[in-house]
């Protein structure tokens, strides 16, 4: 399994590269009123409106520096099923995740050690911990990266279609 690594507040995180559609340079986003501060806004990706999430504010409560290596990872997932099927269903949602140092891809096969995921009710997005070449990497579960209420708010049609 290939992992796309990035850093937030000096710590290294990773997400599975198969959920990533594309990595983009930082794009301007239109702000959404009355949203939590980690929702930077909404931007247009290939004709679709996609919410842009600032992982710096979401994970470490501090904004990201705007550098060349600060990029947007466009991810796609099914909000109900934890593991997305090989073919993306029509009910899948897309999010843009902003992080620093999005410049490297590594393989999970290179991990020296692995720790199981924690089950914290307020932090379900924290997945397994891997140790690769002396560096501890926290895997993120992107289906839970947003709280359910916010997710439902952002994608009402999807939620209603799937909920019954």
């Amino acid at each position: 399994m290939q992992l796309l690594t990035f850093t937030v507040a000096g710590q290294t995180y990773a997400i599975a590269s198969r959920t990533v559609i594309e990595v983009l340079p930082l794009v301007p986003a239109r702000p959404i009123p009355l949203m939590p501060d980690y929702v930077k806004g909404i931007f247009t990706y290939r004709g679709h409106l996609v919410p842009l999430i600032d992982l710096g504010r979401r994970l470490a409560a501090k904004p990201l520096a705007e550098r060349l290596s600060t990029r947007v990872m466009v991810v796609e997932f099914d909000p109900v099923h934890r593991s997305p099927s090989s073919e993306p269903p029509s009910a899948c949602v897309r999010l843009g995740l902003v992080a620093e140092n999005v410049i490297s891809i590594c393989s999970a096969l290179d991990a020296d050690a692995s720790f199981p995921a924690m089950e914290l009710p307020d932090a379900l997005f924290l997945g397994k911990l891997l140790r690769i070449r002396g560096q501890t990497i926290q895997l993120l579960v992107i289906e839970h990266i947003l709280p359910p209420a916010i997710l439902r708010g952002l994608f009402p049609a999807t939620a209603e279609a799937k909920s019954p």
Binding site: L4, S17, R18, I21, V23, R71, I103, I105
Partner: peptide, 21 residues
């Protein structure tokens, strides 16, 4: 030069992602 390197990096990442797929 820096911009070119950056673009190259981005290109390579996306290429890696696509390659995995």
């Amino acid at each position: 030069i820096t911009k070119v390197a950056d673009q190259t990096n981005l290109l390579s990442i996306n290429a890696a992602i696509e390659a995995e797929k």
